[in-house]
């Protein structure tokens, strides 16, 4: 297996209740719960705490370990920068002034940013648990239960399958470039940024031609096996009622918490 596979495959093999649950129940449940989290209004700390409450339970049930889930949940962190200005621009009670800039942070601004970050974090935690307990193939098949057009699911499934192949090809090209690009420590390497972008661009062009030709070979191979425009999926096993009930329970809990918050 290539190093790429370690990065692309986020599934963590474990023996747990969450791993055994049908993806057709898990995916809509996670999505519904995340939508419920999205509805949280600013400063609703109790709502956020109640929505966070199932997460430790799910982590324990999944036997993934808190460290793994926490580490992966930090992925969305760089985007936080887009919300930070709100601390200073939202009018309200001044809390502190940023030295040199003359910007004043307001209590309302801090409250808004904290809410956004908490919402984002709970949503990411939910998604991380889903992806770590469900093989990617199952997840893609489960898209059918969300009424995604079959052609789009087939395309996405193909993309996932060939990510490994085309990604490996890309890595070999990057490695080839690196091995031809000797640098002297401290000295400037290569030419201008535009020249470097041009090198990357020609690699992309080369990768395109190789990928397109691969897709033609793949298509020919599929035709040789009797393909005529329609992918056949294995027959779906029946969806266990208990799985569906557990998924529905999570969504119902999220909806109930929000309903209580909005009606209060």
């Amino acid at each position: 297996m290539s190093a790429l596979a370690g990065f692309l495959d986020r599934y963590q093999e474990r023996e747990s209740l969450l791993h055994r649950l049908d993806a057709r129940a898990k995916l809509p449940a996670a999505l519904g719960f995340i939508v419920a989290v999205t509805f949280t209004r600013e400063g609703e700390w109790l709502t956020l705490a109640l929505l966070f409450a199932p997460i430790p339970l799910l982590v324990a049930l999944s036997r993934l370990g808190a460290a793994l889930v926490l580490r992966r949940s930090l992925l969305a962190l760089p985007f936080v920068a887009t919300a930070i200005p709100l601390v200073f621009t939202r009018p309200g009670d001044p809390v502190f002034e940023l030295p040199l800039t003359g910007w004043t942070a307001s209590a309302e601004g801090i409250r808004a940013v904290a809410t956004i970050m908490a919402r984002a974090w709970i949503a990411v935690l939910t998604a991380v648990i889903l992806v770590a307990t469900t093989p990617a193939v199952e997840l893609l098949r489960a898209l059918r239960s969300l009424r995604v057009p079959a052609l789009l699911i087939s395309t996405i499934s193909f993309a996932y399958r060939y990510l490994y192949v085309v990604g490996d090809e890309a890595q070999r090209m990057i490695r080839a470039r690196d091995s031809r690009s000797a640098t002297i420590p401290g000295a400037r390497a290569g030419r201008s940024v535009a020249w470097r972008a041009g090198v990357a661009g020609r690699m992309v062009g080369s990768l395109f031609v190789r990928s397109l030709e691969r897709s033609e070979r793949v298509y020919a191979a599929m035709q040789a096996r009797g393909y005529h425009g329609e992918l056949r999926f294995l027959h779906n096993p029946p969806l266990p009622r208990t799985d569906l009930a557990l998924g529905a329970a999570l969504v119902a809990y999220g909806a109930l918490v929000q309903a209580a918050a909005y009606l209060r």
Binding site: F158, A159, L163, G167, I174, G190, R214, H228
Partner: peptide, 23 residues
């Protein structure tokens, strides 16, 4: 009928092309 293999591999290509970084 070429749609799925062509667009699927092309999506993998765009994904991989996003790895082609330059300093």
């Amino acid at each position: 009928e070429r749609a799925v293999p062509l667009m699927g591999v092309m999506a993998a290509f765009i994904f991989a092309a996003q790895m082609m970084n330059f300093p």
